[in-house]
Computed example of a mutant assay.
Amino acid sequence: MAQQASMAFASPGGERSKPARKRPIDLVHLTRETFGNRALETEILNLFSRQTCGIVDRLIHANPDDRVRLARSLKGSANAIGAFRVAELAEAVEQAPADSKLVRDLRPAIDDARDYIAAITR
């Protein structure tokens, strides 16, 4: 069975795509990480989407030690799929776990990434 085209190459012009940190998910990075395996891309994106469901609420109510742990986990997951804005914000929370504003700043970035994932995995 032929392997499906990766998400980065599924659309016309995708073959010329360069990494883009302005999109919620860098599809070129994701393709590189998954070796172009579309099924694996979809599985990883869906896992990230499930992982991030409610994470901001958990972070808001967590003590500083738990915030560091949750933020570090989120940062790693976000970097793996190319959700670099989420990763940057999670790292900020990891570095300053007492700053609730940083936690709240995560919500729109996570929502953007989850919306983007929903749009490309339909």
Results as ranks from 00 to 15, higher is better:
Ser6Lys: 02
Leu30Trp: 06
Leu70Gln: 08
His61Arg: 13
Gln3His: 04
Arg85Thr: 15
Leu47Pro: 00
Ala71Met: 08
Tyr116Pro: 14
Ala118Gln: 09
Ala78Gly: 07
Ala83Trp: 10
Glu94Val: 06
Asp112Ala: 15
Arg58Thr: 03
Ala80Cys: 12
Arg72Phe: 01
Ala109Thr: 15
Glu43Phe: 03
Gln51Ser: 04
Ser6Ile: 04
Thr121Lys: 09
Leu40Lys: 03
Ala71Leu: 10
Arg69Lys: 15
Phe35Asp: 10
Asp99Leu: 04
Arg104Gly: 02
Lys75Ser: 10
Lys18Glu: 14
Ala5Thr: 05
Ser49Gly: 00
Ala20Arg: 15
Gln3Trp: 01
Ser6Trp: 01
Glu33Asn: 08
Met1Ser: 06
Leu70Asp: 06
Phe9Arg: 15
Leu59Met: 07
Arg107Phe: 02
Thr34Ser: 07
Arg104Leu: 11
Ala2Gly: 00
Glu41Gly: 04
Gly36Asn: 05
Asp115Lys: 15
Gly54Arg: 02
Phe48Pro: 09
Thr42Asn: 03
Leu40His: 00
Ser11Gly: 04
Glu33Gln: 14
Asp112Ile: 14
Leu102Ala: 07
Leu59Trp: 01
Gln3Thr: 05
Ile110Val: 14
Glu43Thr: 08
Asn37Leu: 02
Gly13His: 09
Pro12Ser: 08
Arg114Thr: 14
Arg67Asn: 07
Ser77Gln: 09
Arg58Val: 02
Pro19Leu: 11
Thr31Ala: 13
Arg114His: 13
Arg38Asn: 02
Ala96His: 12
Gln3Leu: 05
Ser11Tyr: 06
Ala8Gln: 11
Ile55Thr: 09
Leu106Ala: 05
Glu91Trp: 07
Ala83Phe: 03
Val93Tyr: 03
Thr42Ala: 05
Gly82Ala: 08
Pro24Gln: 13
Ala90Met: 08
Ile55Gly: 00
Ala62Leu: 08
Ile117Lys: 13
Ala87Leu: 06
Lys75Cys: 03
Leu89Cys: 11
Lys22Leu: 15
Thr42Phe: 00
Arg32Asn: 11
Leu59Tyr: 00
Gly36Ala: 04
Ala96Glu: 14
Val28Met: 11
Ala5Tyr: 01
Arg122Asp: 01
Ala80Phe: 05
Leu74Ile: 04
Lys75His: 11
